[in-house]
Write a protein that binds this DNA or RNA. Structure first.
Lengths: 194, 194
DNA sequence: ACTGTTGGCCAACGCTCGTTGACCTCGTGG
DNA sequence: CCACGAGGTCAACGAGCGTTGGCCAACAGT
């Protein structure tokens, strides 16, 4: 892509280019095929290099997955949005994230069949979604339950729309989804315990 | 299919026993490992027989999966339950079905990474869930959207609780889940378009 | 008693996978 | 000019997979 000689002597013979090419190809393959069927050989072929380079750079297949799928949900800072709009905002945010690239699809596809993938999803849930909910509900148990409910609806959306591709779920446009799911998330996160 | 002897001294040299042993083992393995990692060899080992027997009985791995995971959601006949309680009833019903055996977990795990598995889920959606919703909403587009929304929440629950095993989702007891998700399903299925 | 059918095992095939180690090729620093 | 190290290729390994075909043992019908 880019030439090679910036200003400095460093970065010489294009390793960075190859590294990101590998990661891009890996993300795509993991998203399309899941962990087992996304073979290192296929990823290397997509990236236009030899399979052994993948091993050199990322150690083994697990390391490659860890490097390729390092999800940051980019959730808004707690308090950054009004409490009574958080449901709609979260749904819209997640829709944008899902369609950004295949990273979330890859994570979900792998998480469904691979132990390490599932563990990574738990980690993301705990480190990224839970803190936002905790800001609203200091009681830890309350927060955990409400965050889990929110996750169930948000992941269910991703599952039906981007993984299983149920036709009616694919056909909906974003506004409509936000209008339907927003109130659900709002209730899970802010309503009184039923 | 089954030629043999209906009237005669049946059950002789135990083929039926083996067949169901294979199906049980297959269901468990597919539920635990997904399609690729649930190997015919492992399934045969669990069933206490030779891998080649699996081939004899079910043709190939796809045939085995088809035979092992033939989901019947056992949804109530349309009109069998009051329209204003259908949300709670559906959630409770699905919880029971998920915990019955590993069949739904197997279906979801395989559906997330396997084309045929995803197609089977679409088929079940269309043939089993959609008709129930159609009974309430004659307009086909309305019915499809509402059924997809319901599926997203129900599958999201199954995903977080039985596949990913997010701790807070596992810790919830059934009544609490019904109390939280019931109103959601109720709204997706019966409320006015938002 | 003979024979065909049925349930089952064993051994092998061809293939693909992740992974490894030897080798090649240059641009650069001394 | 030369050595070196980084970027990259090639060929092979051992293992595991789905699948096949041949063989064996025991029952059932004649």
């Amino acid at each position: 892509m880019t030439r090679s000689k910036p200003p400095a002597p460093a970065a010489s013979r294009r390793s960075a280019t190859t590294r990101t090419a590998i990661l891009d190809a890996a993300r795509e393959r993991f998203a399309a095929d899941g962990y087992e069927r996304a073979t290192i050989r296929a990823i290397a072929r997509d990236a236009g290099i030899d399979p052994s380079m993948v091993m050199r750079y990322y150690g083994n297949k697990e390391g490659l997955f860890a490097a390729a799928v390092a999800v940051d949900l980019e959730l808004p800072a707690p308090g950054a949005l009004p409490r009574e709009r958080i449901g709609h905002a979260l749904v819209a945010h997640f829709l944008r994230m899902w369609e950004d690239d295949g990273e979330l699809t890859a994570l979900l596809r792998v998480g469904a069949t691979n132990e390490a993938g599932a563990a990574r999803m738990q980690h993301i849930f705990q480190e990224q979604l839970l803190p936002v909910v905790r800001e609203m509900h200091p009681d830890p148990e309350q927060a955990a339950v409400r965050a889990a409910l929110a996750a169930s609806q948000l992941l269910g959306l991703g599952l039906t729309r981007y993984v299983l591709r149920l036709p009616p779920a694919v056909a909906l446009d974003r506004e409509e989804i936000v209008a339907w799911l927003g109130p659900t998330l709002q209730r899970y996160l802010t309503a009184a315990h039923p």
